[in-house]
Design a protein around this nucleic acid. Structure first.
Lengths: 185, 185
DNA sequence: TCAAACCCTTACGTCAACGTCAGAGTTGAC
DNA sequence: GTCAACTCTGACGTTGACGTAAGGGTTTGA
């Protein structure tokens, strides 16, 4: 009911935890991965990786002399982020591109921030810019969370009513049909 | 960045609150609505309503002698539920069909529960069944909420770091380049 | 009663996010 | 060096969730 993991349709698969059921691929330390290995580790298809690259979302950090893609840990993290934004926030790849560009800008800002040549006021300005972007993202997430909490509350309410009914049933043990069956909505 | 409302792509539009920006359509009391009125009130297209019917998700409570659909408030609520399940949980229409079937079963159970002819043990059994279904849905929602909270926490952490940096900048007011620029991650 | 506004079914179109297949090149172990 | 396994670049196919247009009925207010 929560959507089968292997399929690409509907929900995006986990892609953040362990890979597929077979061959958990005990992750290598800091080596570069081929597209096949990366795909298996992330639990997604090679096609998806190429597609993300085509859209400019993730470019593998390098290639072999023959032109074969090599993915770093950082690249993998970026792909994981994509899947997270897909499944958690329901963003499409265009919207995700915006978020990733903000991430990149944040990294750039961090560099500049630690650069000795950056003046104090410039530094402050950069931090403010980064802050604005993060707060915008936060607003999106928070909105989603609020709706989800409300939904969860309504489910919990139904559950509470049902549990109440169950207790009342248990209370009226052997006496057959008493009239304690309230009309609770 | 949060997905434009009018478009059908990516995220499902609100459909729970007010309709489109023009003509808020101050809802009629308990009358039946034509498909056009229903669509406008819900902020979705007529095509979507027909499509949901085609999939067996929502059948308007009646039709005119000429065969034109009439939607009750209950029908509208059902459609709103569909949109909510789409946008909040990211379920596809097949998965939503399952949830709606559970909703229907719950309503049926409620009827049986309040039926005098239903015995005490049967009653208990029915409540248990309903409870199981709701708890299954709850698990789905809760899982989503947990991931979302974690994501939100990570965003908040970044924000906190940035705010810290900002305060430190404000602290080192006029003195040009001091060395209080910590390496915080 | 009659025309404008609305609705019906049927059917083809669209768009995102990949799936899949073909034909050719690359790599790495032996 | 060679061969199996892997990867490359096109390019067309698929699927879900509708959009859209055609051709024809239905409703309703004047």
């Amino acid at each position: 009911m929560t959507g089968r993991s292997p399929g690409p349709r509907s929900q995006a698969p986990p892609a953040g935890g362990a890979a597929a059921d077979v061959t958990p691929v005990t992750r290598p330390p800091g080596e570069l991965l081929s597209i096949g290995a990366a795909a298996q580790l992330l639990g997604i298809s090679e096609r998806a990786l190429r597609y993300y690259q085509q859209l400019g979302l993730v470019t593998p950090c390098g290639t072999t002399p023959g032109g074969m893609r090599r993915y770093s840990d950082e690249d993998l993290a970026r792909v994981a982020r994509i899947r997270e934004l897909q499944s958690l926030l329901g963003l499409n790849l265009d919207e995700i591109a915006v978020v990733l560009r903000n991430d990149d800008r944040a990294a750039e800002i961090k560099q500049l921030y630690h650069d000795e040549r950056t003046g104090a006021d410039k530094r402050t300005e950069l931090v403010r810019e980064s802050l604005r972007m993060q707060e915008q993202l936060r607003a999106t997430v928070e909105a989603k969370r609020a709706s989800l909490d409300q939904f969860l509350a309504s489910v919990d309410e139904r559950i509470a009513r049902l549990e109440g009914a169950l207790e009342r049933e248990a209370g009226s043990t052997s006496r057959a049909t008493d009239r304690t069956h309230q009309q609770t909505g």
